[in-house]
Design a binder for these strands. Structure first.
Length: 426
RNA sequence: CGGGGUGUAGCGCAGCCUGGUAGCGCGCCUGGUUUGGGUCCAGGAUGUCGGGGGUUCAAAUCCUCUCACCCCGACCA
């Protein structure tokens, strides 16, 4: 993509409303723009990142044996009356009426919809276990939206729902999701700590929150240092349950099982939440299957959320410096930024064109800054939007047949011949 | 919802106290200049001063109602 044809309205100054780093940087790099309180439009640069994150989440959900569906954003109130949540959910639920004055709502989650789907079609234990997920926009009318898309009212969430015949089966599903989550966050260069949590409005008795360590996190968490050594490949639910991690309101320093020297404290951003809640929805929605003994059994359920749009902010919180964002390669909007420092120099521009075309041919996602601007502005913009690699071509280097390759995260720079630079990238 | 604050050009702000033709920086447009860390020079465009009502000869400025947004707290992916 050529910068001259792309659209990323970068800002030199920070809009006054933005306090936290991710919010500031998302606005300044032209990833998002606010429509109204807690509701944002995603501009091309931001959307690229959002899609990459969603794709990683999708791949790991699929790998864990889940099936993707797509459920509606608008749901009928009747469905929620059946679970009793139409009343319980309170003002966080956006309630609307259609032209027939029927009560509708913008879905904050989808237990009701998915359980009804399950109940409609699945009748036998032989079809279990099943796990369905979707990645869909949700709306929760938060008391106080803040931090940009980190606590928006409208947000993109992956929500997965598991259906098992037995409690043991449900725990296996739960564990599969825990493992998928650890793997998902690791792919985005995030250290996620599963913190034991109360299950809140969703109900049930087993629940973990996934917290990303970040200074600007909203909650304080206490955890065993061993959490930092978790290995995705050996992770088990039993092992997780032996480790201590708690949010500040749950943490009791008097009765903490972890000795002080192994207890760490940090700020966390909640990016995922997993629940086991048994038959809370299967009974009211008639989600029963016939068991091997010919008896009707209500299915054991769990649900598993990941805040996909929130992850964009969480990743920036974890990966930025004073100049801008430092994207992990897996979620970067482009892998390489190609800087033409002198558009008016024909040799320099010709060289950049060659490099650009070769990168494209090599399947490299590249943003070629071909705008007619001074070098300083180009450096500043490129550091701000935070692409992992920069290939810098100026008149100086052209004379020597060289360019500079810079790693945004480490700030390491090497002077390379054009051929070597291309080899480096490809 | 309780507490605090802000609305003036695309962004950041001054002007308001003490009423009198609406300003600055950045950005934007034109021309030139510069080209390895937000070049420099010249010229130019852009405002229902958040909205309604009131006081006044006169309101961005005073009064009043209202709307929106932000920050701190309790909730949440």
């Amino acid at each position: 993509m050529r910068s001259s044809l792309f659209f990323y309205p970068t800002l030199k100054e920070t809009p006054q409303e933005a306090q936290v780093a991710s919010h500031r940087l998302m606005l300044r790099s032209g990833m998002i723009t606010q429509v109204t309180s807690g509701i944002y439009s995603w501009l091309p640069l931001g959307l690229r990142v959002l899609k990459k994150i969603a794709q990683i989440v999708r791949e790991e959900q699929d790998r864990a044996g889940s099936l993707e569906v797509l459920m509606p954003t608008i749901q009928p109130a009747e469905l929620w009356e059946r679970s009793g949540r139409y009343h319980d959910y309170g003002k966080e639920m956006l309630r609307i009426k259609d032209r027939h004055e029927r009560d509708m709502l913008y879905g904050p989650t989808a237990e009701e919809v998915i359980t009804e789907i399950f109940a409609r079609f699945i009748k036998s234990y032989r079809d279990l276990p099943k796990r369905f997920y979707n990645i869909q926009w949700k709306f929760r009318d938060e008391i106080r939206p803040r931090f940009g898309i980190m606590r928006g009212r409208e947000f993109l969430m992956k929500d997965n729902y598991s259906f098992d015949l037995t409690i043991e089966g449900a725990k296996a599903s739960y564990q599969a999701m825990l493992e998928a989550y650890v793997r998902t966050f690791a792919r985005m260069d995030l250290t996620a700590i599963p913190v034991r949590a109360s299950s809140g409005a969703i109900g049930g008795n087993l629940s973990h929150e996934f917290q990303i360590l970040a200074e600007t996190g909203e909650s304080e968490i206490f955890y065993d240092v061993d959490y930092e050594k978790l290995d995705v490949n050996t992770l088990t639910l039993d092992h997780l349950q032996t480790l201590y991690a708690a949010s500040d309101e749950l943490h009791d320093s008097q009765n903490c099982p972890v000795p002080l020297e192994r207890l760490k404290t940090a700020r966390g951003i909640e990016v995922g939440h997993v629940f086991y809640f048994g038959t809370k929805y299967s009974i009211p929605f008639n989600a029963y299957v016939m068991g091997p003994d010919g008896k009707q059994i209500p299915v054991e359920m769990g649900s598993y959320g990941i805040g996909v749009s929130r992850l964009v902010g969480a990743i920036i919180e974890a990966h930025h410096d004073e100049r801008g964002i430092k994207w992990p390669e897996s979620v970067a909007p482009f892998r390489v930024g190609l800087l033409n420092l002198n558009m008016k120099d024909a040799a320099c521009s010709q060289l950049c064109e060659d490099i650009y075309l070769k990168l494209l041919q090599g399947g490299i996602d590249v943003l070629y800054d071909d705008r007619d601007m001074g070098p300083g502005a180009k450096f500043a913009d490129m550091d701000l939007i935070g692409l992992p690699w920069q290939i810098i071509v100026g008149s100086r280097g052209v004379a020597l047949g060289q360019c500079e390759v810079k790693n945004r995260r480490t700030d390491e720079r090497v002077q390379l011949s054009i051929e070597d630079a291309l080899k480096w990238m490809l």
